Amino acid sequence: MNRHVTLSIGAAAAALLAGCEPGAKMSTQTGFRGTGLEQIVDVSSIKEAAAIPPEPYPLPPDGGPTAAETYQNVKVLGAVSAERFNHLMAAMTQWVAPPEQGCNYCHNPENMASDEKYTKIVARRMLQMTRTINSRWSSHVQKTGVTCYTCHRGNAVPENVWALAQNTLDPGTIRGNKRGQNTPDPNVGYASLPSDPFAAYFQGKGNIRVASDQALPSPDHVVSIKDAEKSYGLMMHVSTALGVNCTYCHNSQSFRAWNLSRAQRGTAYYGIRMVRDVNENYITSLRSVFPANRKGPHGDPYKVNCTTCHQGLAKPLGGVSMIAQAPALKGPPMLTAAPEVGPAAAVPAAFNDPAEMTDRTEPATATLRK
């Protein structure tokens, strides 16, 4: 072959390969050598942590009359002092409410106790949810905790939410129905994987399993190619949402083995179940409250996934805790509180104690990594 042709082919191949992952890379070894635990990060894609907004005014000391003693119709934060209740309400207008509306986004200014606005009913349920996350899901949020700002970032509706995809509930047709696949979607890394893994794993209780613990086929572990693709699609979402690769949680020697995995895998395990709890027991229970513009094409409310909080960072907001600005959001848990509308959602026993959250194929990570 002509020397110039060979050089041209080599240069073209190098250019094509370089085009797959352009830019500088940063490599960090996160485990013992030879264990395949290494993080490789595209420096140009590192997300900056969002700016933490200042408090509306200094947090007042606790004590004095409670919110329930001072105001009418305070159903969640009644035991909080009125001064700290006012401080939290002022913070929430910065974290959630549109600037031009402020308090009026949830309240009737002529009757602050009124529940006539759906946004107030939703906000009350979200306060219950936030207190539950901080008190019952420390297995995921640790001591950092969450506030309204963790998801909302100054928006009335968080920027990263999801609802059932357009064709998700239309299994009766073949022509023109891609079954959720072969559509470039950032949720699954623009792959041909199912672009809506959330319905199965973040709303339902789909079993996220691909690798068996046995060499030969077993009736105890039957995973179809379709199910495997959904699982991979979910993992692509988690990877993108946290800005990490697979070995942030898994050991590439055995993706299944918990005793070889990093502690982060246990945190992620509880995070998936926390998201299910939020979507099932707090957001879906408000389906009849949300107006049509707050619902997806199939009429289900917009729900949360990993990107809602993380937004490209392994730790939301870069790991900065805002809970000191809003101590009333620490708890106590509100899992047993009934939704504002409709019958109380059944709360599985497993959600009451994260240490009990197991399934038939995987040990509780509380005993492995915590």
Rank of each mutant, 00 (worst) to 15 (best):
T336H: 12
N134T: 06
R294G: 01
H107W: 01
L59G: 02
A328R: 02
A350Y: 12
P301L: 08
F351P: 00
A349R: 07
E280T: 08
K47P: 00
R131L: 09
I133A: 06
Y71G: 00
T183A: 02
S285Q: 06
C148G: 03
L234T: 00
M322T: 06
M357P: 01
Q181M: 13
A326S: 14
A14H: 04
V5K: 04
P297R: 05
A349Y: 10
Q311K: 12
S288D: 15
R262Y: 01
A51E: 15
A91Y: 13
Y232Q: 13
A241W: 08
F198I: 00
V320I: 11
N160H: 12
R262Q: 14
R153K: 11
S239G: 10
E356G: 09
V41C: 07
N111Q: 08
E38C: 10
G172S: 05
G31Q: 11
L7C: 06
A349L: 10
L88A: 13
S218I: 06
Y248W: 15
K75D: 15
P58R: 13
S135P: 06
G189R: 14
A18V: 05
G233L: 11
V141K: 03
G36D: 09
P65V: 13
Q39L: 14
M89E: 13
S45I: 03
Y282Q: 01
R276I: 13
G319T: 06
E48T: 13
Y270G: 00
T267S: 09
D300G: 04
I225M: 05
K295R: 14
T28Q: 14
Q264G: 10
Q94L: 08
T367P: 00
V41T: 15
S254P: 02
P327G: 04
T358P: 02
S254H: 05
K230R: 14
A328N: 01
F351R: 07
A199Q: 10
A346P: 01
E340P: 00
R294Y: 15
K178T: 09
H310D: 07
Y201E: 03
R179K: 13
P53R: 08
I52D: 12
V238H: 03
S138M: 09
Q253A: 11
P217G: 08
S288Q: 14
I174Q: 08
I272V: 11
S138G: 04
G180Y: 05
E116C: 04
Y118T: 01
G34K: 04
L368C: 06
G299Q: 04
M274D: 01
E362Y: 08
E340M: 09
Y201K: 04
G299R: 08
N167V: 02
W258R: 07
Q72T: 11
A24G: 08
T365L: 06
A91Q: 09
P219L: 05
P339K: 08
E55S: 14
K178R: 06
F202Y: 10
C249S: 10
M236N: 12
V238S: 03
S231H: 11
M26L: 15
D62M: 07
H140G: 00
Y232H: 14
Q39D: 11
E48F: 06
I323N: 10
A364K: 05
F202P: 03
M236H: 12
T30I: 13
E38A: 06
Q39F: 09
K315C: 03
R360F: 12
L17H: 00
A163H: 01
V146A: 05
Q29Y: 12
G78H: 05
Q94H: 08
